[in-house]
Every structure is written in C-alpha cells, then in structure tokens.
Design a protein around this nucleic acid. Structure first.
Lengths: 219, 219
DNA sequence: GCGATTCTGACAGCAGCCTGACATCGCGCC
DNA sequence: GGCGCGATGTCAGGCTGCTGTCAGAATCGC
C-alpha cells in the first residue's frame, strides 16, 4: 500500500517510516500540513497516518477537508497522550482508528493490517469503560454485550465523562458542557439526566460524590 | 480489453495509459474531443475513460452523443475534485462510474477490473445491508431481490452511509457530502431526501437518532 | 433524629422530525 | 420553441418523544 505519514516529531516519524517501509509499504513522510496537502493533491494514498498537532495547523482540518471532498481513504490518527477529546473529534471528523502516543510499533502494524481488512467488513473501534463498550463512530453503546440507546443529552453527558476518564465533574462543569453559553438552566436538570443515564447504564456506572459532583465509575 | 482514454493533462494521461497498458489492455490515448470522436467512429472499444473538461469541449457531450446513438460501452468519468455537479451530470448522461482526481492508480485498476468482470458476465461484488443489496460499481440496488431505482441525490446519500458502515451521520455531515462548498442549503432538504429514500428502501432502512443524525439500519 | 442533599416518577411544553403538496428548474422530445 | 416529465428544494401542518420542571421520597452525614 502507499501510505502518507504526517508527523512533525523527527524521531517518531523516522521510526514509523522505517517500520512501515519494512513491511513492504511505500511511505511518504511529511512534517507539515502544507507538504501533506501538496502530496494529497498529486498522489493517491491507501492510508493516511495523521498527527493532530503540527507546527502549521491541525491534522483535523486536513481530515475534514478530505472527507468533504469525498475522499474515503482510511485514516489512522496519532494522538498525543490520552486525549480522548482529540479521539472523539477525530472519529467524528471521519477517522477510522487512532493510536495513543507513545505506541508500540507492532501495534501500529496491527492497526494498519486491520484497516486493510476493514474493507472486508470489520467493525468500528470501541472504547471500553467497565462493562460498557462505546462506539464513537456509530454513536452506539452496549452494556454487557447488550445494545443501549441514548438520547442526545445523555450521549453528551457520557461524552463529557469519557473525555476525562476518572475525573470528578461538578454539576456546573456538566452544565457548561451540555448547554451553550448563556442558556441558563434552573432546577436539577443535571441530576435528572444522571438518573436517566444510570437507568440505562447501570446504577454503579456513575458515582455520586456528595457535595462535589459525579464521576464515571471505573468498575 | 480495448480502452479509449480521453485526458488532456499530459502527466495524468501518460500515467494512466502506462498503468492500464501494464495490465494487459490496449489503450488509445487521445487529448482532444475531436480525436476521440474520430477513434470512436472507426474503432470498437470495451471501455471509455473520459475527462470532462477538455480544450475543445466537454466529455459530457461525447458521452451523451454515444448514448443517444445506442452505444452502451461502459464509461468511467474522471472528474476534478469537488465537482459533484459534474458527477451527477455524468451519471445522468449514462456514465457507469466516476473517479475523483486525484485518484489512486490502483483504484482505477479496481474499477477497470470491475468493468472487465461485468464484461465477462460476472457480477460485481455486492454489499449487503439488511434486505438491501448494493452494487457500488454499477450503481444498482435491489431490495429483497427486487430492483430499485434511485435518483442522483438519493445515491449520494446512500453512498455516504455505505462508505462508513454503521456510522451515525449528522445532518451537517450529510449536507457537506451532498452539496459542494458554498452551495448553502436552507430548510429541511436532508430530511426530505431521507424520507424519499426510506420510501424506496423501506422504513427501517435508515434509523433516526433524534437530535444527532441518521444511521443506516443494520437489521 | 434532623437538615441537607440527592434521587426519581410524573407531566406538560415544545423542539425536532416526518411527509404530503406545491413551485421551480433542467432536460429530452416532438 | 413549446410541451411534458422527473428531480429537487421549500414550506406548513401534524405528530412523537425528548427535556426541563417540580414535588415527594430516599439517602447521607452528623
């Protein structure tokens, strides 16, 4: 396959390039958005490996632009640390998979192989929290193997928790997350939504910290 | 097979010619409408590869002319990127498939192979979703074994869903997909098209996720 | 036991969605 | 050019069920 690698860190870029090349793929390694854009305009690729944070912009922009243009080339995102928010944004923008830095080169190989297979009908990547399996692409969710439907607000709540795993979120933080600026909410809306979420996810899925807020259970 | 390639850009034309020739097909590469017309008049082809924008006119004219004359030779259109209107016009004019520039030569090979298979009487690979069978190559579709005709917009919608199986697509994503940049759409066009698609595909084919978007049913 | 806090069932209002009807546009045909 | 037809965009009326609100019950900490 012909692969475009966009990664500004020299050490990592070189390592990835060598690894992938060794497996028989043709790799074009670019270090800036501009270069990558130029390559995309002139060459067809079978796979894109995108770092999100680059000196001249975000790889997300590149991805969105491609998708808007009808380009369906598979994309694997390389995110810094455990920025689930980045992953969510990436998958929403049309990425197929993601890898968290630092990653094992053999894991990268596995994902590349998986992407190749995906065209044979493999499922979307899943994020697991306890007995929950979250599919950020299809916005679907299963609990202990059984499908669960969420409403828009419930999904937004769950996303808020997933972006900062294990974090304690105050009611105010959650409100800021669910409602646009200025849209003040009175009463105990958040509590009600937490209650509804618990009914669907299981009572222990969300832990109450009295006087402080809520936390997504790690059980 | 004997293939007529009509493409005025020298670099691309040469690359395509070499690639296709390498796969054992006979290629006649022409750079103007006039030349191509002359070839068509004197030679029988198994496949036409048409660029739409040429120095002396539009490949569309050639295509329409052929179809009007009862010529059913398979046609693959090579469009500049983002020109969705061109694609729609091309398909309406009787093209069998299109490729968006820049495209991967291997993708071109795949499409040509698909044409060759059909030519040899073998069916294209079908994608099945529920009771639907979709042939993305020949742009044909059947529901529960019975053929279904879709309009251009309906195809574009269905394609968007098929390219990311199971994904939840927001109204905005779908709009980006159906309409070129800048062509702002007001009102509930997407909803209406979804409704029309459902009428043809069956009510359960497309699932509504209130407040978030739509998903192609997996049933 | 008592106050503070949180949970949850019930309900009404309305945002979001569906769909039939109509206007418009482009295209082919005569 | 005139005509007919199908595709597409727009709109409005009607319906569904999400969502915010409230109040009473339950729980917690002391």
């Amino acid at each position: 396959m012909r692969i475009l690698l966009l990664e500004d860190a020299p050490a990592l870029g070189e390592a990835v390039r060598d690894q992938v090349a060794e497996e028989g793929h043709a790799v074009d390694w670019m270090q800036t958005l501009g270069e990558a854009r130029a390559c995309l305009a002139t060459t067809g690729y079978d796979l894109l490996l995108l770092d999100l944070w680059l000196p001249d912009g975000s790889g997300l922009e590149l991805l969105k632009h491609c998708r808007r243009a009808g380009n369906t080339t598979p994309v694997i995102i390389l995110t810094a640390r455990d920025q689930i928010s980045d992953r969510i944004a990436g998958l929403n923008a049309g990425a197929d998979d993601y890898l968290v830095k630092p990653f094992d080169l053999s894991e990268l190989s596995a994902r590349i192989a998986a992407v190749a297979r995906r065209y044979a009908g493999n499922p979307n990547p899943l994020v697991k929290v306890g007995e929950l399996e979250v599919d950020l692409v299809s916005h679907s969710l299963s609990r202990a193997g059984h499908g669960v439907e969420l409403t828009a607000r419930e999904w937004a709540l769950l996303e808020a928790f997933m972006q900062r795993p294990g974090a304690l979120l105050s009611r105010t933080q959650l409100e800021d997350r669910l409602y646009a600026f200025g849209a003040e909410v009175e009463s105990n809306t958040i509590e009600v939504h937490i209650s509804r979420l618990r009914k669907k996810l299981g009572r222990d899925a969300i832990e109450t910290v009295r006087g402080m807020g809520y936390r997504l259970g790690q059980a």
